[in-house]
Design a protein around this nucleic acid. Structure first.
Length: 356
DNA sequence: TATCCAAGGTAAGTT
DNA sequence: AACTTACCTTGGATA
């Protein structure tokens, strides 16, 4: 395993590892010292977070272990009630360890070790969107009171860039589910059908490949408590494994076309499609209209309720993305109204966590 | 201890 | 196209 550190002060704007990984954007990381999945309410201090990337186009071609923790001044965050901005979010350090499983390793039974060095800083920068200019995003949106409060409370939370297939499956599982249980489902999928990797005597599991999930039966997946999502997961995995479609094929299409393209997968409607676009494919203008956000729109932007998903989506994107300065420089890859997804993520986490 | 209910929706069947 | 309904499972609330 290679190791290294990233100084938060070298980034454009703050960074907070815990809120980034525990805000319900991603279900692919686990806290290493926890006996529970990541959503545990108890704060884990400066704990390590771990993920095992399956072979992922444009990122890694081998199962790759990535670990990260953030250090510096975390104690004051223990009490959420009087939590304020803390030093580590602006001046802390992200420590990382990363390694890939060699192609010729692990013949049969024994899990292979991630002995091949990889560039952990580049991978983390990608996965945790350390390349976004978060300070500029705050500046642009801070005049909206709801957002201002959420920005302050979860200062440093960034959007995620999950690998496409695991993101797709985990949000298919999210339908009518609590965040804590979505973590549990993904944990079960990894442990049952993921490639095992040995890390210093512990066994970690990569997210299952499309082929691995396509080979399961609906009943087998129901045994993991997926409920009615089991056939959705199996059939969508089959579509990807058979080469019929891949979630990343939507990349490059105009936003609304990309959303339509993503809904071809079984179990994927507009909301889950928006999640994949936002949390994996870099469409920062996507706002998944879940129950929390629908409520917030009713409370704060009632005129944006267009009566159906497509119209409400268009209205709220315009409201949160319109007339903002410098967006071309901040979001070269995404273009206009690209702040909307950041706003959504803060509002979702704020409402869900603080019961506002 | 038993029962009820809602949880980051979607697909399929009716008007 | 807009509107209904069924769908698995389970932790937490209520009786």
């Amino acid at each position: 395993m290679e190791s290294g550190r990233i100084d938060v002060s070298s980034l454009d704007g703050p960074f907070d590892l815990q809120s980034t990984l525990e805000s319900g954007q991603t279900y692919l990381w686990e806290r290493a010292d926890g006996d529970d999945y990541v959503d545990s309410a108890a704060y884990g201090g400066d704990a390590w977070y771990e993920t095992v990337l399956p072979p992922t186009p444009e990122l890694t071609d081998r199962p790759t272990v990535v670990r990260a923790r953030q250090r510096g001044g975390v104690d004051e965050r223990r009490s959420s009630a009087d939590r304020t901005q803390s030093d580590h979010v602006d001046d802390g350090t992200i420590e990382w360890e990363a390694g890939a499983v060699p192609a010729d390793a692990g013949a049969a039974d024994a899990p292979a070790a991630p002995t091949e060095p990889v560039d952990g800083e580049a991978i983390l920068t990608h996965l945790l969107r350390l390349d976004d200019d978060l300070a500029a995003i705050y500046d642009a949106l801070d005049d909206l009171s709801l957002l201002s409060r959420a920005f302050d409370r979860y200062r440093g939370m960034r959007l995620i860039r999950d690998p496409p297939f695991p993101c797709l499956i985990s949000f298919i599982c999210s339908a009518q589910m609590r965040v804590s249980r979505i973590f549990g489902m993904q944990h079960a999928l990894r442990e049952h059908y993921g490639t095992p990797v040995d890390l210093d005597g512990r066994t970690l599991y990569a997210y299952p490949t499309p082929e691995a999930l396509a080979a399961r039966t609906e009943d087998e997946l129901r045994e993991l408590s997926l409920g009615y999502r089991a056939p959705y997961v199996q059939r969508t995995a089959e579509m990807v494994a058979d080469g019929e479609a891949r979630p990343e094929d939507a990349r490059g299409l105009p936003y609304e076309e990309a959303r339509d393209a993503a809904t071809q997968f079984v179990g994927v409607g507009d909301k889950v499609a928006d999640c994949v676009l936002l949390f994996s494919l870099g469409y920062l203008q996507a706002i998944p209209l879940d129950t929390w956000i629908q409520t917030a729109i009713g409370d704060y932007f009632p005129d944006c309720d267009g009566g159906n998903y497509a119209e409400t989506s268009r209205a709220i994107r315009e409201r949160l993305g319109a007339d903002l300065p410098e967006r071309e420089e901040v979001f070269g890859e995404s273009g206009a109204d690209a702040y909307a997804g950041y706003a959504q993520t803060y509002v979702f986490h704020h409402l869900r966590t603080d019961g506002d």
